[in-house]
Amino acid sequence: MIAYTLRRLLQMIPLLFFVSLAIYTLVALQPGDPLEGLIFQNPHLTQEDIAKLKAAYGLDQPIHIRYFKWLGRALQGDLGLSRTYAQPAAQFIYGRMQNTLLLTGLSFLLALAVAIPVGVFSAVRQYSIADYVVTFFSFVGYSTPVFWLGIMLMLLFAVWLPERLGRFEPIFPAGGFVSPGVSPDTVGWWAYLKDRAWYLVLPVFTLSVLSMAGWTRFTRSSMLEVLQQDYIRTARSKGLSERVVIYKHALRNALIPIVTLVGLAIPGLFSGAVITETIFSWPGMGRALFDSLLEKDYNVAMAALVFLAFLTALFNLLADLAYAVVDPRIRYN
């Protein structure tokens, strides 16, 4: 097991090298360079000035040289400066990551808390009306475009319902993450937290619907498969109560594939949700990545993407290891 883990960790090195090379090439190959806007805004710049600027940013060199320079600095822990935000890229990403983890973490927990009980319930009562309702809604949840769902919720809670109820304030705000002027110092901690939670409701729900629906279906089918096994019949024939059969014998086995699925979803928590963040103007990682790519802020884009690639590889490994822990039949060598 330790040898296997070490080997997988070592394999991550060439993987990350190629991933970072591919990402760098793609980002750098994009048409136009980062100085374009600057040059456009200032007609007084001469060709000489532009050449000087390019040299200062290292843009006059070919892509592979720039990549290895970036790699050399990154290996020493220097991820460079963000050009658009005028602060170290690492610091900027760290700040955005906190916002994002709040949003994605909450929706991850919400999805799990709903999906597993509902999936188990629906499997235990297979072919009942409740099962059909759950199945229908999980299909709908799985087929809804996230961006449309966000806009519809906004329409419902920020436009229609307030209109019907004749109130000026939206029931849940249509975007942002804290009311203007609200901070722990001005209104106290409790009111501050309440305000933040008020802004979180719609984005968290929007973001959780897809994984909620997917995991419900997955839990249901995994449970159904386990419930057909011989050891469940044995457990029932021993006279165990239905509760013990389902929660102790069936659920624990049904959770094995779910562990993998959920483990693989964790890197996504860090990458943020470009679409949800865009709709609800949430200053998170997804948006940061999106903007840095648009504005050709290479250092931010590279730091974020390579960090995410590292997390994906790491959680792939952890999911495999967790699989071996929860299912002793699996051995790696």
């Binding site: 993987l15 990350l16 190629f18 991933v19 591919a22 990402i23 793609l26 980002v27 190959l29 994009q30 048409p31 136009g32 990458s271 470009v274 997804g286 990545l289 999106f290 790519l293 648009l294 884009a301 993407l305 995410l308 690639a309 994906t312 590889a313 792939n316």
Partner: peptide, 28 residues
């Protein structure tokens, strides 16, 4: 399998964005 590992470790949506920005631009 290595190729699939490689493709799955790149965050998909940003890569899609970069690719389509690159391909949709008449300067490339």
């Amino acid at each position: 399998s290595r190729l699939i590992d490689f493709m799955l470790s790149i965050p998909t949506l940003p890569l899609l964005l970069v690719l389509s920005a690159f391909l949709n631009d008449s300067r490339s």
